[in-house]
Write a protein that binds this DNA or RNA. Structure first.
Lengths: 236, 236
DNA sequence: CGCCCTTTCTACCGAGTGGTAGAGAAGAAT
DNA sequence: ATTCTTCTCTACCACTCGGTAGAAAGGGCG
Protein backbone atom coordinates (compact mmCIF):
# COMPACT_ATOMS: atom_id res chain seq x y z
CA UNK A 1 0.00 0.00 0.00
CA UNK A 2 2.54 2.55 -1.06
CA UNK A 3 -0.06 4.51 -2.95
CA UNK A 4 -2.19 5.10 0.08
CA UNK A 5 0.75 5.83 2.27
CA UNK A 6 2.03 8.24 -0.29
CA UNK A 7 -1.30 9.96 -0.51
CA UNK A 8 -1.67 10.26 3.21
CA UNK A 9 1.82 11.65 3.59
CA UNK A 10 1.12 14.01 0.72
CA UNK A 11 -1.91 15.51 2.45
CA UNK A 12 0.07 15.77 5.65
CA UNK A 13 2.76 17.71 3.83
CA UNK A 14 0.20 19.98 2.21
CA UNK A 15 -1.27 20.71 5.62
CA UNK A 16 2.16 21.50 6.99
CA UNK A 17 2.91 23.77 4.07
CA UNK A 18 -0.25 25.82 4.34
CA UNK A 19 -0.09 25.85 8.14
CA UNK A 20 3.42 27.22 7.96
CA UNK A 21 2.28 29.95 5.59
CA UNK A 22 -0.72 30.96 7.69
CA UNK A 23 1.04 30.70 11.04
CA UNK A 24 3.79 32.91 9.67
CA UNK A 25 1.33 35.42 8.24
CA UNK A 26 -1.24 35.63 11.05
CA UNK A 27 0.36 33.98 14.03
CA UNK A 28 -0.62 30.79 15.80
CA UNK A 29 -3.79 32.11 17.44
CA UNK A 30 -4.67 34.22 14.42
CA UNK A 31 -4.68 31.32 11.97
CA UNK A 32 -7.70 29.07 12.54
CA UNK A 33 -7.85 25.38 11.74
CA UNK A 34 -10.78 26.12 9.44
CA UNK A 35 -8.70 28.51 7.37
CA UNK A 36 -5.78 26.11 7.16
CA UNK A 37 -8.09 23.26 6.16
CA UNK A 38 -9.75 25.46 3.56
CA UNK A 39 -6.36 26.38 2.12
CA UNK A 40 -5.57 22.69 1.75
CA UNK A 41 -9.00 22.01 0.28
CA UNK A 42 -10.40 19.79 3.05
CA UNK A 43 -12.65 20.22 6.09
CA UNK A 44 -11.46 20.85 9.59
CA UNK A 45 -12.15 17.33 10.99
CA UNK A 46 -10.10 15.88 8.14
CA UNK A 47 -7.21 18.05 9.20
CA UNK A 48 -7.64 16.92 12.78
CA UNK A 49 -7.43 13.34 11.59
CA UNK A 50 -3.82 13.98 10.52
CA UNK A 51 -2.92 16.16 13.51
CA UNK A 52 -4.65 15.37 16.76
CA UNK A 53 -4.73 18.97 17.91
CA UNK A 54 -3.79 22.46 16.84
CA UNK A 55 -0.78 22.28 19.11
CA UNK A 56 0.21 19.04 17.39
CA UNK A 57 0.11 20.91 14.11
CA UNK A 58 2.26 23.68 15.53
CA UNK A 59 4.84 21.15 16.67
CA UNK A 60 4.72 19.53 13.25
CA UNK A 61 5.34 22.83 11.51
CA UNK A 62 8.24 23.59 13.82
CA UNK A 63 9.71 20.14 13.39
CA UNK A 64 9.56 20.39 9.62
CA UNK A 65 11.43 23.67 9.69
CA UNK A 66 14.04 22.32 12.09
CA UNK A 67 14.41 19.24 9.92
CA UNK A 68 15.26 21.48 6.97
CA UNK A 69 17.66 23.39 9.17
CA UNK A 70 19.32 20.15 10.17
CA UNK A 71 19.90 19.49 6.50
CA UNK A 72 21.91 22.64 6.02
CA UNK A 73 23.88 22.47 9.26
CA UNK A 74 26.30 19.81 8.00
CA UNK A 75 27.05 22.02 5.01
CA UNK A 76 27.65 24.85 7.43
CA UNK A 77 30.07 22.82 9.47
CA UNK A 78 31.89 21.73 6.37
CA UNK A 79 32.04 25.26 5.05
CA UNK A 80 33.24 26.54 8.39
CA UNK A 81 36.15 24.15 8.46
CA UNK A 82 37.14 24.35 4.83
CA UNK A 83 40.18 26.38 4.02
CA UNK A 84 38.90 29.61 2.61
CA UNK A 85 36.23 32.23 2.91
CA UNK A 86 34.71 30.42 5.84
CA UNK A 87 32.86 33.39 7.13
CA UNK A 88 31.32 34.27 3.78
CA UNK A 89 30.24 30.69 3.24
CA UNK A 90 28.58 30.24 6.61
CA UNK A 91 26.87 33.61 6.47
CA UNK A 92 25.45 33.21 2.98
CA UNK A 93 24.41 29.62 3.65
CA UNK A 94 22.49 30.65 6.75
CA UNK A 95 21.01 33.65 5.05
CA UNK A 96 19.88 31.59 2.09
CA UNK A 97 18.11 29.17 4.42
CA UNK A 98 15.74 31.91 5.44
CA UNK A 99 15.66 33.68 2.10
CA UNK A 100 14.59 30.45 0.43
CA UNK A 101 11.39 30.67 2.47
CA UNK A 102 10.89 33.88 4.44
CA UNK A 103 8.03 32.20 6.30
CA UNK A 104 10.71 30.34 8.22
CA UNK A 105 12.04 33.59 9.58
CA UNK A 106 8.59 34.97 10.34
CA UNK A 107 7.52 31.75 12.03
CA UNK A 108 10.66 31.63 14.12
CA UNK A 109 10.21 35.25 15.10
CA UNK A 110 6.60 34.71 16.14
CA UNK A 111 7.45 31.65 18.18
CA UNK A 112 10.22 33.55 19.94
CA UNK A 113 7.73 36.27 20.82
CA UNK A 114 4.87 33.94 21.78
CA UNK A 115 6.70 31.17 23.61
CA UNK A 116 10.20 32.30 24.54
CA UNK A 117 10.62 29.81 27.35
CA UNK A 118 9.52 26.98 25.09
CA UNK A 119 11.94 28.03 22.36
CA UNK A 120 14.94 28.26 24.61
CA UNK A 121 15.82 24.54 24.56
CA UNK A 122 15.36 24.49 20.80
CA UNK A 123 17.71 27.41 20.45
CA UNK A 124 20.28 25.74 22.60
CA UNK A 125 20.06 22.44 20.77
CA UNK A 126 19.86 23.75 17.22
CA UNK A 127 21.81 26.99 17.07
CA UNK A 128 24.19 26.62 19.97
CA UNK A 129 26.54 24.49 17.78
CA UNK A 130 26.33 27.08 15.03
CA UNK A 131 27.20 29.76 17.55
CA UNK A 132 30.11 27.84 18.96
CA UNK A 133 31.63 27.33 15.55
CA UNK A 134 31.51 30.99 14.68
CA UNK A 135 32.79 32.02 18.08
CA UNK A 136 35.75 29.67 17.77
CA UNK A 137 36.37 31.07 14.31
CA UNK A 138 36.27 34.60 15.66
CA UNK A 139 38.64 33.85 18.53
CA UNK A 140 41.04 32.16 16.16
CA UNK A 141 40.87 35.19 13.92
CA UNK A 142 41.57 37.43 16.90
CA UNK A 143 44.66 35.45 17.78
CA UNK A 144 45.82 35.72 14.18
CA UNK A 145 45.16 39.44 14.17
CA UNK A 146 42.66 39.27 11.34
CA UNK A 147 39.68 40.05 13.51
CA UNK A 148 39.05 43.08 15.70
CA UNK A 149 40.39 42.27 19.15
CA UNK A 150 37.60 44.05 21.01
CA UNK A 151 34.80 41.93 19.60
CA UNK A 152 32.59 40.11 22.08
CA UNK A 153 32.18 36.93 20.02
CA UNK A 154 28.94 35.66 21.52
CA UNK A 155 27.32 39.07 21.36
CA UNK A 156 28.52 39.55 17.79
CA UNK A 157 27.01 36.24 16.75
CA UNK A 158 23.72 37.10 18.44
CA UNK A 159 23.56 40.29 16.42
CA UNK A 160 24.42 38.45 13.22
CA UNK A 161 21.60 35.97 13.73
CA UNK A 162 19.32 38.84 14.56
CA UNK A 163 20.24 40.61 11.34
CA UNK A 164 19.68 37.55 9.19
CA UNK A 165 16.44 36.28 10.74
CA UNK A 166 14.69 39.59 11.30
CA UNK A 167 16.17 41.11 8.18
CA UNK A 168 14.43 38.47 6.10
CA UNK A 169 11.25 38.40 8.16
CA UNK A 170 10.72 42.14 8.08
CA UNK A 171 12.26 42.85 4.72
CA UNK A 172 9.01 43.80 3.04
CA UNK A 173 8.33 46.36 5.73
CA UNK A 174 11.87 47.62 5.92
CA UNK A 175 12.21 48.51 2.28
CA UNK A 176 9.60 51.18 2.89
CA UNK A 177 12.57 53.13 4.23
CA UNK A 178 14.55 52.87 1.03
CA UNK A 179 13.97 55.18 -1.92
CA UNK A 180 12.17 52.67 -4.06
CA UNK A 181 11.45 54.94 -6.93
CA UNK A 182 13.71 53.43 -9.53
CA UNK A 183 14.56 49.98 -8.25
CA UNK A 184 12.34 46.95 -8.16
CA UNK A 185 11.73 44.95 -5.04
CA UNK A 186 14.19 42.34 -6.20
CA UNK A 187 16.95 44.87 -6.57
CA UNK A 188 16.19 46.36 -3.17
CA UNK A 189 16.46 42.91 -1.67
CA UNK A 190 19.81 42.38 -3.32
CA UNK A 191 21.07 45.76 -2.08
CA UNK A 192 19.92 44.91 1.44
CA UNK A 193 21.59 41.53 1.48
CA UNK A 194 24.81 42.83 -0.02
CA UNK A 195 24.98 45.54 2.60
CA UNK A 196 24.22 42.99 5.32
CA UNK A 197 27.21 40.90 4.35
CA UNK A 198 29.42 43.96 4.00
CA UNK A 199 28.23 45.16 7.39
CA UNK A 200 28.96 41.80 8.96
CA UNK A 201 32.45 41.64 7.45
CA UNK A 202 33.29 45.19 8.40
CA UNK A 203 32.21 44.55 11.98
CA UNK A 204 34.39 41.46 12.11
CA UNK A 205 37.55 41.80 10.09
CA UNK A 206 40.24 44.37 10.52
CA UNK A 207 40.71 44.34 6.77
CA UNK A 208 37.40 43.31 5.23
CA UNK A 209 38.63 43.54 1.68
CA UNK A 210 41.46 41.14 2.37
CA UNK A 211 39.14 38.86 4.26
CA UNK A 212 36.86 38.70 1.30
CA UNK A 213 39.60 37.81 -1.07
CA UNK A 214 40.90 34.79 0.75
CA UNK A 215 41.95 34.70 4.29
CA UNK A 216 44.65 32.28 5.12
CA UNK A 217 47.65 31.20 3.17
CA UNK A 218 47.46 32.31 -0.44
CA UNK A 219 45.49 29.75 -2.30
CA UNK A 220 43.03 29.39 -5.11
CA UNK A 221 41.51 32.74 -5.83
CA UNK A 222 37.76 32.80 -5.31
CA UNK A 223 35.66 34.73 -7.70
CA UNK A 224 34.89 38.28 -6.73
CA UNK A 225 32.26 37.77 -4.13
CA UNK A 226 28.83 39.08 -4.84
CA UNK A 227 25.80 38.19 -2.79
CA UNK A 228 26.15 34.50 -3.39
CA UNK A 229 29.65 33.47 -4.07
CA UNK A 230 30.08 30.03 -2.66
CA UNK A 231 27.36 27.70 -3.78
CA UNK A 232 26.23 27.30 -7.34
CA UNK A 233 22.97 28.41 -5.83
CA UNK A 234 20.27 29.14 -8.36
CA UNK A 235 19.73 32.75 -9.14
CA UNK A 236 16.06 33.51 -9.33
CA UNK B 1 -14.51 56.42 46.54
CA UNK B 2 -12.05 59.27 46.38
CA UNK B 3 -12.74 60.36 42.85
CA UNK B 4 -10.78 63.20 41.39
CA UNK B 5 -11.48 64.73 38.05
CA UNK B 6 -8.34 63.09 36.78
CA UNK B 7 -9.76 59.66 37.42
CA UNK B 8 -11.14 59.17 33.94
CA UNK B 9 -7.88 60.01 32.25
CA UNK B 10 -6.04 57.97 34.83
CA UNK B 11 -8.06 54.85 34.09
CA UNK B 12 -7.55 55.37 30.38
CA UNK B 13 -3.80 55.50 30.93
CA UNK B 14 -3.90 52.38 33.08
CA UNK B 15 -5.79 50.57 30.36
CA UNK B 16 -3.24 51.66 27.78
CA UNK B 17 -0.38 50.53 29.99
CA UNK B 18 -1.73 47.06 30.63
CA UNK B 19 -2.93 46.68 27.06
CA UNK B 20 0.56 47.52 25.82
CA UNK B 21 2.03 44.92 28.12
CA UNK B 22 -0.41 42.19 27.13
CA UNK B 23 -0.41 42.97 23.41
CA UNK B 24 3.37 42.84 23.48
CA UNK B 25 3.43 39.58 25.39
CA UNK B 26 0.60 37.64 23.69
CA UNK B 27 -0.14 39.55 20.53
CA UNK B 28 -3.26 41.43 19.57
CA UNK B 29 -5.50 38.40 19.04
CA UNK B 30 -3.95 36.52 21.92
CA UNK B 31 -4.72 39.18 24.51
CA UNK B 32 -8.44 39.30 25.30
CA UNK B 33 -10.34 42.36 26.49
CA UNK B 34 -11.33 40.42 29.60
CA UNK B 35 -7.69 39.82 30.53
CA UNK B 36 -6.76 43.44 29.95
CA UNK B 37 -9.72 44.62 31.99
CA UNK B 38 -8.85 42.19 34.76
CA UNK B 39 -5.28 43.48 34.82
CA UNK B 40 -6.61 47.00 35.26
CA UNK B 41 -9.08 45.84 37.90
CA UNK B 42 -12.31 46.61 36.06
CA UNK B 43 -14.85 44.66 33.97
CA UNK B 44 -14.83 44.37 30.23
CA UNK B 45 -17.78 46.74 29.53
CA UNK B 46 -16.05 49.41 31.61
CA UNK B 47 -13.02 49.06 29.40
CA UNK B 48 -15.21 49.35 26.32
CA UNK B 49 -16.60 52.57 27.71
CA UNK B 50 -13.14 54.14 27.37
CA UNK B 51 -12.31 52.51 24.05
CA UNK B 52 -15.19 51.81 21.72
CA UNK B 53 -13.66 48.64 20.31
CA UNK B 54 -10.64 46.41 20.60
CA UNK B 55 -9.27 47.98 17.46
CA UNK B 56 -9.71 51.39 19.04
CA UNK B 57 -7.62 50.19 21.95
CA UNK B 58 -4.95 48.93 19.58
CA UNK B 59 -4.80 52.31 17.88
CA UNK B 60 -4.59 53.98 21.27
CA UNK B 61 -1.69 51.80 22.32
CA UNK B 62 0.11 52.51 19.06
CA UNK B 63 -0.54 56.24 19.32
CA UNK B 64 0.79 56.38 22.84
CA UNK B 65 4.00 54.70 21.77
CA UNK B 66 4.38 56.99 18.77
CA UNK B 67 3.72 60.00 21.00
CA UNK B 68 6.62 58.94 23.18
CA UNK B 69 8.72 58.46 20.09
CA UNK B 70 7.83 61.94 18.91
CA UNK B 71 9.19 63.23 22.20
CA UNK B 72 12.64 61.81 21.58
CA UNK B 73 12.87 62.69 17.90
CA UNK B 74 13.66 66.36 18.54
CA UNK B 75 16.50 65.29 20.80
CA UNK B 76 17.68 63.02 18.03
CA UNK B 77 17.66 65.80 15.50
CA UNK B 78 19.52 68.08 17.86
CA UNK B 79 22.06 65.40 18.65
CA UNK B 80 22.51 64.62 14.98
CA UNK B 81 23.34 68.21 14.14
CA UNK B 82 25.53 68.98 17.12
CA UNK B 83 29.24 69.10 16.47
CA UNK B 84 30.62 65.83 17.73
CA UNK B 85 29.74 62.23 18.48
CA UNK B 86 26.64 62.55 16.37
CA UNK B 87 26.46 58.91 15.53
CA UNK B 88 26.95 57.70 19.07
CA UNK B 89 24.34 60.12 20.38
CA UNK B 90 21.67 59.18 17.86
CA UNK B 91 22.31 55.47 18.23
CA UNK B 92 22.23 55.39 22.01
CA UNK B 93 19.23 57.70 22.17
CA UNK B 94 17.27 55.45 19.83
CA UNK B 95 18.42 52.33 21.62
CA UNK B 96 17.44 53.74 24.98
CA UNK B 97 13.96 54.50 23.72
CA UNK B 98 13.33 50.81 23.29
CA UNK B 99 15.41 49.68 26.23
CA UNK B 100 13.39 51.93 28.52
CA UNK B 101 10.39 49.74 27.73
CA UNK B 102 11.11 46.59 25.72
CA UNK B 103 7.38 46.18 25.18
CA UNK B 104 7.69 48.98 22.66
CA UNK B 105 10.02 46.89 20.58
CA UNK B 106 7.91 43.75 20.91
CA UNK B 107 4.72 45.62 20.09
CA UNK B 108 6.30 47.23 17.05
CA UNK B 109 7.63 43.89 15.90
CA UNK B 110 4.24 42.21 16.26
CA UNK B 111 2.47 44.97 14.39
CA UNK B 112 5.00 44.75 11.58
CA UNK B 113 4.33 41.03 11.34
CA UNK B 114 0.55 41.25 11.71
CA UNK B 115 -0.26 44.35 9.67
CA UNK B 116 2.68 45.24 7.45
CA UNK B 117 0.63 47.22 4.96
CA UNK B 118 -0.99 49.20 7.75
CA UNK B 119 2.37 49.98 9.34
CA UNK B 120 3.97 51.21 6.15
CA UNK B 121 2.57 54.75 6.31
CA UNK B 122 3.51 54.97 9.98
CA UNK B 123 7.04 53.91 9.14
CA UNK B 124 7.28 56.49 6.42
CA UNK B 125 5.93 59.28 8.58
CA UNK B 126 7.76 58.49 11.79
CA UNK B 127 11.09 56.92 10.89
CA UNK B 128 11.65 58.24 7.40
CA UNK B 129 13.01 61.53 8.84
CA UNK B 130 15.26 59.59 11.18
CA UNK B 131 16.52 57.58 8.24
CA UNK B 132 17.15 60.63 6.13
CA UNK B 133 19.22 62.28 8.82
CA UNK B 134 21.47 59.29 9.27
CA UNK B 135 21.82 58.77 5.53
CA UNK B 136 22.86 62.38 5.04
CA UNK B 137 25.32 61.97 7.89
CA UNK B 138 26.73 58.84 6.28
CA UNK B 139 27.08 60.45 2.86
CA UNK B 140 28.79 63.45 4.40
CA UNK B 141 31.15 61.10 6.20
CA UNK B 142 31.85 59.31 2.96
CA UNK B 143 32.80 62.58 1.27
CA UNK B 144 35.07 63.38 4.18
CA UNK B 145 36.64 59.96 4.02
CA UNK B 146 35.65 59.04 7.56
CA UNK B 147 33.07 56.49 6.48
CA UNK B 148 33.52 53.42 4.34
CA UNK B 149 32.86 54.44 0.74
CA UNK B 150 31.10 51.21 -0.21
CA UNK B 151 28.29 51.57 2.32
CA UNK B 152 24.75 51.55 1.01
CA UNK B 153 23.40 54.18 3.41
CA UNK B 154 19.72 53.27 3.29
CA UNK B 155 20.44 49.57 3.63
CA UNK B 156 22.87 50.24 6.47
CA UNK B 157 20.26 52.23 8.34
CA UNK B 158 17.67 49.52 7.83
CA UNK B 159 20.02 47.01 9.41
CA UNK B 160 20.78 49.37 12.28
CA UNK B 161 17.10 49.79 13.07
CA UNK B 162 16.68 46.06 12.79
CA UNK B 163 19.48 45.49 15.27
CA UNK B 164 18.11 47.92 17.80
CA UNK B 165 14.43 47.01 17.64
CA UNK B 166 14.75 43.23 17.36
CA UNK B 167 17.80 43.16 19.57
CA UNK B 168 15.77 44.59 22.43
CA UNK B 169 12.59 42.65 21.63
CA UNK B 170 14.31 39.28 21.48
CA UNK B 171 17.05 39.93 23.98
CA UNK B 172 15.72 37.52 26.58
CA UNK B 173 15.68 34.73 24.01
CA UNK B 174 18.99 35.64 22.46
CA UNK B 175 21.02 35.50 25.64
CA UNK B 176 20.31 31.78 25.68
CA UNK B 177 23.16 31.69 23.17
CA UNK B 178 25.63 33.35 25.47
CA UNK B 179 27.51 31.43 28.17
CA UNK B 180 25.52 32.75 31.09
CA UNK B 181 27.28 30.81 33.76
CA UNK B 182 29.07 33.64 35.45
CA UNK B 183 27.32 36.80 34.39
CA UNK B 184 23.94 38.02 35.44
CA UNK B 185 21.24 38.99 33.00
CA UNK B 186 22.05 42.64 33.48
CA UNK B 187 25.66 42.15 32.59
CA UNK B 188 24.73 40.10 29.54
CA UNK B 189 22.49 42.92 28.41
CA UNK B 190 25.30 45.39 28.85
CA UNK B 191 27.67 43.19 26.87
CA UNK B 192 25.11 42.86 24.10
CA UNK B 193 24.47 46.58 23.86
CA UNK B 194 28.15 47.46 23.99
CA UNK B 195 28.86 45.03 21.19
CA UNK B 196 25.93 46.40 19.21
CA UNK B 197 27.37 49.90 19.30
CA UNK B 198 30.86 48.63 18.51
CA UNK B 199 29.41 46.61 15.65
CA UNK B 200 27.57 49.62 14.31
CA UNK B 201 30.64 51.85 14.50
CA UNK B 202 32.91 49.27 12.92
CA UNK B 203 30.48 48.82 10.05
CA UNK B 204 30.35 52.54 9.50
CA UNK B 205 33.66 54.24 10.21
CA UNK B 206 36.92 53.56 8.52
CA UNK B 207 38.64 54.22 11.84
CA UNK B 208 36.17 53.39 14.60
CA UNK B 209 38.65 54.13 17.35
CA UNK B 210 39.14 57.65 16.09
CA UNK B 211 35.43 58.13 15.75
CA UNK B 212 34.96 56.99 19.28
CA UNK B 213 37.78 59.09 20.61
CA UNK B 214 36.07 62.25 19.54
CA UNK B 215 33.47 61.62 22.17
CA UNK B 216 35.17 60.31 25.21
CA UNK B 217 37.80 61.99 27.23
CA UNK B 218 40.99 62.16 25.21
CA UNK B 219 43.60 59.60 25.78
CA UNK B 220 42.43 56.40 27.42
CA UNK B 221 43.70 53.71 25.14
CA UNK B 222 41.67 50.54 24.80
CA UNK B 223 43.68 48.08 26.82
CA UNK B 224 41.49 45.01 27.05
CA UNK B 225 44.56 42.84 26.76
CA UNK B 226 42.49 39.66 26.96
CA UNK B 227 40.36 38.15 24.26
CA UNK B 228 37.07 38.86 25.95
CA UNK B 229 37.99 42.12 27.54
CA UNK B 230 35.12 44.35 28.35
CA UNK B 231 35.99 47.84 27.30
CA UNK B 232 35.52 50.64 29.77
CA UNK B 233 32.00 51.38 28.81
CA UNK B 234 31.17 54.90 27.77
CA UNK B 235 28.29 56.74 29.26
CA UNK B 236 25.29 54.52 29.08
C1' DC C 1 -19.59 -10.77 -2.02
C1' DG C 2 -18.23 -9.44 2.99
C1' DC C 3 -14.72 -7.56 5.76
C1' DC C 4 -11.22 -4.37 7.01
C1' DC C 5 -8.89 -0.19 7.07
C1' DT C 6 -8.00 4.54 6.00
C1' DT C 7 -9.81 8.78 5.12
C1' DT C 8 -13.29 12.37 4.67
C1' DC C 9 -17.37 14.15 5.71
C1' DT C 10 -21.80 16.49 8.30
C1' DA C 11 -23.56 17.76 12.59
C1' DC C 12 -22.76 19.11 16.88
C1' DC C 13 -20.61 20.61 21.49
C1' DG C 14 -18.80 23.72 25.26
C1' DA C 15 -15.92 27.48 25.92
C1' DG C 16 -14.40 31.88 24.98
C1' DT C 17 -14.56 36.01 22.02
C1' DG C 18 -15.87 41.08 20.99
C1' DG C 19 -19.66 43.80 21.70
C1' DT C 20 -24.50 45.64 23.49
C1' DA C 21 -28.51 46.88 26.61
C1' DG C 22 -29.69 48.90 30.32
C1' DA C 23 -29.75 49.57 35.26
C1' DG C 24 -27.50 51.84 39.00
C1' DA C 25 -24.10 54.68 41.68
C1' DA C 26 -22.02 59.02 42.67
C1' DG C 27 -21.00 63.90 42.02
C1' DA C 28 -21.93 68.46 40.11
C1' DA C 29 -25.01 71.88 38.65
C1' DT C 30 -29.43 73.77 38.61
C1' DA D 1 -34.32 67.82 45.93
C1' DT D 2 -33.88 67.14 41.11
C1' DT D 3 -31.66 66.59 37.02
C1' DC D 4 -27.62 65.63 34.20
C1' DT D 5 -23.28 63.55 33.38
C1' DT D 6 -19.81 60.26 34.01
C1' DC D 7 -18.63 55.88 34.93
C1' DT D 8 -19.18 50.96 36.25
C1' DC D 9 -21.66 47.11 36.61
C1' DT D 10 -24.65 42.43 35.51
C1' DA D 11 -26.77 39.96 32.01
C1' DC D 12 -26.94 38.77 27.60
C1' DC D 13 -26.02 38.33 22.45
C1' DA D 14 -24.15 36.27 18.08
C1' DC D 15 -20.21 34.34 16.55
C1' DT D 16 -15.97 31.75 16.16
C1' DC D 17 -12.90 28.78 18.22
C1' DG D 18 -10.79 23.90 18.88
C1' DG D 19 -12.40 19.47 19.25
C1' DT D 20 -15.69 15.11 19.03
C1' DA D 21 -19.17 11.56 17.37
C1' DG D 22 -20.29 8.92 14.07
C1' DA D 23 -21.79 7.93 9.46
C1' DA D 24 -20.24 7.26 4.76
C1' DA D 25 -17.00 6.61 0.95
C1' DG D 26 -13.74 3.71 -1.15
C1' DG D 27 -9.94 0.77 -2.11
C1' DG D 28 -7.56 -3.80 -1.12
C1' DC D 29 -8.20 -8.56 -0.12
C1' DG D 30 -10.03 -13.12 1.57
Amino acid sequence: MPAERTKGADITQQILTHATRLFAARGFVGASLRDIAKAVGIRKPSLLYHFNSKDDLRRGVLEKMLAHWNEVVPRLLKAATSGHEQFQAVATETLEFFRADPDRARLLLRELLDRPEEMEPLIESHVQPWTKIICDYIRKGQQQGRVHPDIDPEAYVVHMINLMVCGVALHDSMIALMPAGDDGREQLAARTMTELLRFARAGLFIDPAAAREGIEAPGPLPEPASVSGKEPSPER
